[in-house]
Design a protein around this nucleic acid. Structure first.
Lengths: 344, 344
DNA sequence: CTGTTAGCGCTTTCAT
DNA sequence: ATGAAAGCGCTAACAG
């Protein structure tokens, strides 16, 4: 196994100084045509793959790479179309700016912190997580530009998020209109991801700020509609997927007080809700009004009333912010899309 | 803006040598309790975020990161559920082994090569690409462990793929059985991604080995069934998505010789085919038999006969191979799943 | 258990 | 246009 070829070897073989070889790669205009071609020939001859990225990063003090921290099990992230769309937005900007994008595998174990610490990146983007996630402190300690998507808010770090509470209040008004027994199919409250069904949930239990804000918004809407929060059923799912939402909804519908309006926290979940409702022989929106969140492709094909937001744009905004630009506010970057899954 | 804190500063502040400070982070057992706590205290005091990853990589000669090369526009990759599933498999192994995963944004522009060259990674994983992709030579030149998924085969690099030709021949036998006018809804033939509809396509035109092998397998199947390849219509889609497959299929069905069997190269495409067939008022499988590829979630819900393969497992295998283990053969890691979209 | 030395491979700075 | 020196921040290798 041949050792790694270095720039010094190339320079020697080409009969020039190391700097001339270096310039050949970094400032070609500064090198004579002759020297340049000799260096390149020597490089080709020796099989030199170009300047070593780690050495270059050390010297330059920059890695040209952004780190994306995906909460807990990576599995969830790639199974979640919202997260994938967000990643696409980040990737787009990275590709555009010639940056790499490193996915930082967070396992939920205590060594997560060291994974942040040992990441060779110029900045961090943190995908929605919970208040007590130790990863946040680790990111903060890195003293590099960092942007959190969704939340929580961390002093010194940028935050890119919509106003989840306001959006939930508004879509809540739509879905709960005329309802007597509203329900919420919620995303997990904490990183432990426990499924539960409760009545009048304690919103403070929700450690994910995004989930918490949405619950608060739905509560606002319920109150506005004259429904006591204690009468609102909250079905918390462990994961953001269709199947679990379907099971949960089936359970809700089989209960003594089946809901007549269900607000889901994603279109994926709403798709599961719709299946369960139809499977129960009920009609949407007459028997049960349903709303989703995100306005993904599936929302249009299901005729789902939902909250439109562009995770892709938010991903791009996070990347740009991590690269130094002002993120600007995305608080109002959402809109209610009314379709046929809610009552008029 | 305070300069970066270094290990040397921490050591000095703690009143120990640099090595003691280094050991504190890397071999804590080797350091006395007293020294350790003094170092940690000094680090906390100065806000030292831990050893600099670039410097450590340079010194150790390893980055603890794998690079994943996604062909052409990143957009495609994240929109393609197969690619995302593959990434999940890679990510799983990376998370498990404490490795990061760097997505290398390939834009199709000439500077792609430099993005490979300047990637600080220990190994490469290349997602299916075409024969003449310049990225392949760049990866090869890096002299690091590298694995190609799907193809093409490159000397010295590992290859993880199923036997696409054999699988296509077998599913082709199923979908073309009893058909008189078979058609194929194909993935792109080359990175230029041009949509076309032709008869008896020249298979050598397909520069993506995966596509080429599948076409060859379908041709085998047609020939086996007594159908001349010249009579098989091939509709080439620019992208692997539902919408384009639907449009293409609509065009096929509106032609003078509408197909009575359609083999698609992904379940996504097959879903589009099914929509178009139904929209034309035809019945599956009686009027038109349809098959997909991958056995994604959508296949089961559509009752689609398809080729099952686990992109996730293949992603994991690629990652393990890039980390040094023998990849083993995946040639036979596929199976035909018969459902109701084909004739008995 | 702790420290000294030497350099990983490169590029910035400052000459020439 | 080219080069010499210096050192980015860290850790393997080897003493003590």
């Amino acid at each position: 196994m041949s050792k790694r070829v270095t720039l010094a070897q190339v320079a020697k073989s080409a009969g020039v100084s190391v700097m001339t070889a270096s310039y050949t790669y970094n400032q070609p205009g500064r090198v004579s045509e002759q020297a340049r071609s000799r260096v390149l020939a020597a490089a080709a001859d020796l099989g030199y793959p170009g300047p070593d990225p780690s050495a270059r990063s050390l010297r330059r003090g920059s890695t040209q790479t952004l780190g994306v921290v995906l909460g807990e099990h990576l599995t969830y992230a790639f199974d979640d179309p919202q997260a994938v769309t967000f990643l696409a937005g980040v990737a787009e900007v990275c590709a555009d700016q010639g940056y790499g994008m490193t996915i930082l595998p967070i396992s939920g174990a205590p060594d997560d912190v060291s994974r942040i610490t040992s990441a060779a990146v110029d900045g961090f983007i943190v995908w929605t997580t919970s208040d007590e996630d130790p990863v946040l402190a680790a990111v903060q300690a890195m003293k590099r530009p960092a942007v959190i998507h969704g939340g929580p808010e961390v002093p010194g770090l940028e935050l890119v998020t919509i106003d989840n509470r306001a959006a939930a209040r508004e879509i809540g008004a739509v879905v709960f209109a005329g309802a007597r027994r509203p329900a919420i199919v919620s995303q997990p409250l904490s990183r432990s991801r426990i499924s539960t069904i409760t009545r009048g949930a304690d919103i403070a239990d929700a450690l994910f700020p995004v989930t918490r804000d949405r619950l608060a918004g739905y509560r606002d809407a319920a109150t506005d509609a004259g429904i006591a929060w204690a009468d609102v059923t909250v079905a918390v799912c462990a994961r953001n997927d269709l199947a679990e939402a379907e099971r949960m909804t089936a359970a809700l519908l089989a209960s003594a007080t089946p809901p007549d309006a269900i607000a889901a926290m994603s279109d994926q979940q709403a798709a599961g809700v719709i299946r369960a409702v139809r499977a129960a022989g009920l009609t949407i929106p007459q028997d049960v009004a349903v709303t989703g969140w995100d306005d993904a492709a599936v929302a249009a094909s299901l005729g789902l009333t939902t909250v439109a937001q562009s995770l892709r744009e938010q991903g791009a905004a996070c990347a740009l912010a991590a690269l130094g630009s002002e993120p600007g506010s995305h608080q109002k970057s959402w809109a209610i899309v009314r379709r046929d899954s809610t009552r008029r």
